[in-house]
């Protein structure tokens, strides 16, 4: 829904979509039926967000819309008009550095094929921000919206808890 009241979109037409992607304003055109993940990946070229099911179960497509994790496969591109979207490409502080959470994944072997990873990172990034003191039960609960076929989850849980601890330490320092 647009932020400026109801707008009638024409099914056969492309409509301009403008959004802030990882802090940069970008725009493109989308038919009303185009899903947000297709818009991100194939219109904007941000291929870091992955698609595993297109029916809301696997979590691979998770992005943050206005700071809240959401399924890009259950969101139309036109719904994101005017929103702030954060994707995996926006997590690292610099091109040659990883964030604390990303680094923890590397240290603890929290990924194998890495296909599920972008979505999981976006969920955990929000969790660590909202619940800096989260425990294993909360981490597992947050992860329950994601499917990973490679890792068996244990290394992901370890990585998340290690990242939470590291972030708490830097906050105190």
């Amino acid at each position: 829904m647009s932020r400026h009241g109801p707008v009638v979109l024409d099914a056969g037409q492309r409509h301009p979509v403008r959004l802030a992607l990882n802090g940069r304003t970008v725009s493109g055109e989308a038919e009303p039926r185009m899903l947000l993940h297709d818009f991100l990946r194939h219109v904007l070229g941000a291929t870091g967000t992955h698609v595993g099911c297109e029916h809301g179960i696997c979590g691979a497509c998770t992005v943050q819309i206005d700071g809240v994790p959401a399924r890009a496969c259950l969101t139309f591109a036109v719904q994101a008009d005017g929103a702030e979207i954060r994707t995996v490409e926006g997590l690292a502080p610099a091109a040659d550095r990883l964030s604390v959470l990303q680094e923890a994944f590397r240290t603890h072997h929290g990924l194998q094929c890495g296909f599920c990873t972008p979505g999981i990172l976006m969920t955990l990034d929000a969790l660590l921000r909202e619940r800096p003191n989260c425990d294993e039960a909360e981490v597992r609960d947050a992860l329950s919206g994601h499917l990973c076929r490679c890792t068996g989850y244990a290394p992901i849980v370890k990585a998340a808890l290690a990242a939470a601890e590291a972030l708490r330490e830097t906050d105190h320092a």
Binding site: G48, T49, L98, R106, T107, C113
Partner: peptide, 21 residues
């Protein structure tokens, strides 16, 4: 040794090169 994987940095940053990418 369990050294860090060379694959990981790109995958973690959304720079994987999967077929649809």
């Amino acid at each position: 040794q369990s050294i860090p994987r060379v694959e990981d940095a790109a995958l973690l940053a959304g720079r994987g090169r999967f077929i649809d990418d």
